[in-house]
Design a protein around this nucleic acid. Structure first.
Lengths: 283, 283
DNA sequence: CCAAAAGTGTTGATATTACACCCATGT
DNA sequence: ACATGGGTGTAATATCAACACTTTTGG
């Protein structure tokens, strides 16, 4: 199969596609119903109907069309292959090794990742050859999609304190308890609630709505939303907005206050280093 | 110009190219000779000979060929347009907005960045329509290349503590003084040398070679190299190797030591948050 | 001995961790 | 009253920024 002979293929431009890793955090109900100790992440895969890797599962994706932005292409592809409509997409990486299609025509994949409401994920549609899999129970995957998924999961773990991501997972407003629980689930580690709440409140990211959430027979919890200053960053990694402080690090600063004129930049990295916890001691 | 009519163009796949931002840190000699207070970064640009943006300067780049990896394409393109042969390339981002070519055919650019020896940069070749510009003295740029350069500079600043980058800038082995000076130049801020050296030594990244560097009439400095454990990460952001500690952050940990089986991951982010300095106080 | 950079010590301020404890609520 | 999470306090420790200080060299 394939088009043309070897030398023709050699000079042809490669195919370009957009591939997306869609993630959904399972609800607490489902987790307890399934008897899982912690909420898991699920993702939709599409069964391949053609070679190469026919019959295996793959990430949803499709060709990149001209006069579409990369994001638009990703959205359209998702809609047509899985009926999903995430409200937030972030570019992950572009993969282009000729080896990755192992025999097929060379394929460049511009990869995105996104989150989707739990609700959408409950659509366990078996139509369209789409199926949801738990992140820790994936089938054999086509191409290098396993690696792409790993990278997407890594990104999620490192973006979990970001307005867009949190909103997608629990909506707004939310209680500190909810936030804590989701962060724990995604990061896969336990965090001291008392310190967590203090740090969040000190971070200036949150804004008290004044409302409370009453639930069950316990004390009502204050509801927060993200401070509007802290949007930015997450959508487009290249939007390294000038703001706040630098990343932090090495030795001591000097304190001459000579910030450059090309603008300091916060963003993906600094947002994280500023907000993520240090590894706790195991004592 | 342009091929086909509008509707044909609309359905055609977009052009795909590889674009590179090459950076070189000027030597101390040049900086002092030019009377610049701090060493600057320089980058090569190519003058466009065709529309769109004919006559303006642009980043070196070229079409992506099939049966080449993205990196290979970037290397080849660089060699043919600028005669540069960086030993290290890192993917930056893929830009694909139809608007970015403003009128031309839609163009997807997979962007890389790299560092090059000061030596190579001394080749101020005016042949090939290539010219080097200081990062703070750029001409008007074609497409959205100004933005791409900003992003590359941002990445460099945040990768400056990484083996590959340091090696490219000062080679190995190096003294703590050299490292300190380069980091200061790239980050564009002054760092307390005493604290810098302590932090570096504590970081476990460095390994004493046992040798010393004698220079001038001053005390010889110990020479270090990077500990071989700390390679990884920088080349391919998706190589999030399991190692060391998590990123750090939020509230308190819990200390049950239940690291997940899918592997903790250090990498670009954690490497940075672990090593970069916090903003010094200006007092 | 001097200049200059290498390298070490110290201190106050701030942040982090781990854990004890009180608070408000519906049943 | 009591179980349950919401929310606060706090002591021990670690980290950091700042800057004073000592050491080693060539001339």
């Amino acid at each position: 199969m394939g088009i043309g002979n070897v030398s023709e293929r050699r000079n042809a431009p490669p195919q370009v596609g957009v591939t997306s890793v869609i993630l959904a955090l399972e609800s607490e109900e489902r987790a307890t119903r399934d008897g899982v100790s912690r909420r898991r992440l699920w993702l939709p895969l599409v069964r391949r109907t053609r070679e190469p890797f026919k019959g295996l599962w793959a990430l949803p994706g499709g060709p990149l069309k001209a006069n579409r932005s990369l994001e638009e292409s990703a959205y359209e592809t998702l809609a047509s292959t899985t009926d999903l409509h995430p409200t937030y997409l972030e570019q992950l990486y572009t993969f282009g090794d000729p080896s990755r299609s192992s025999g097929g025509i060379p394929m460049v994949s511009i990869c995105y990742w996104a989150l989707v409401e739990q609700a959408e994920f409950d659509v366990r549609d078996s139509e369209h050859n789409v199926r949801w899999f738990a992140q820790n129970d994936l089938p054999q995957l086509a191409f290098d999609h396993a690696r792409i998924i790993d990278y997407a999961l890594w990104r999620l773990r490192h973006r979990i304190d970001t307005p867009n991501v949190v909103r997608q997972l629990i909506g707004e407003p939310f209680t500190l308890g909810q936030l804590h629980s989701v962060v724990e689930a995604v990061r896969g580690e336990q965090l001291d609630l008392a310190n967590f709440r203090r740090k969040m409140l000190a971070s200036q990211m949150l804004e008290d709505t004044g409302d409370v959430l009453r639930e069950g027979r316990r004390r009502p919890a204050a509801l927060y939303r993200f401070n509007s200053e802290f949007e930015s960053a997450a959508l487009d990694p290249t939007l390294f907005t000038a703001s706040a402080d630098e990343v932090g690090g090495f030795g001591g600063g000097y304190g001459r206050g000579d910030h450059e004129s090309d603008g300091g930049m916060s963003d993906e990295l600094s947002a994280l280093s500023a907000l993520m916890p240090n590894t706790p001691h195991t004592r």
